[in-house]
């Protein structure tokens, strides 16, 4: 099979199926991303607040939130009154397409 330039992913997909764990992982990330962005759309929040709303361990929220910060969906806000936790908020309305 000759692969057309710019469409070579199909070529490899035919030769090498994507493992189920990889697609499951993508689904999980997409779900978590949506949940985090939706929670932040309602107002800026800290990591422990997000962990409570999403019922996820705080370290997992931290990891995904920092990934979203890196990818440009989220930005850093002010610190809380105790100078302990930062608030985070959606950037560009969470790029809306999410």
């Amino acid at each position: 099979m000759e692969a057309e330039k710019g469409k070579t992913a199909k070529y490899l997909k035919a030769k090498r199926p994507v493992p189920k764990a990889v697609t499951e992982h993508l689904k999980y990330f997409t779900r978590t991303k949506k949940a985090l962005i939706n929670a932040l759309k309602e107002g800026e929040k800290t990591v422990p607040q997000l962990a409570e709303i999403l019922a996820l361990p705080a370290d997992e929220v931290m990891y995904h939130l920092m990934s979203l910060l890196k990818y440009g969906f989220v930005e850093t806000g002010e610190m809380d009154d105790m100078d302990e936790y930062f608030y985070y908020k959606v950037k560009d309305h969470g790029k809306d397409k999410s």
């Binding site: 990591v47 705080a58 302990e84």
Partner: peptide, 11 residues
């Protein structure tokens, strides 16, 4: 965004 605890984001 700064130095934070990976466990919960506390400074």
């Amino acid at each position: 965004n700064t130095i934070l605890r990976p466990g919960d984001g506390k400074m």
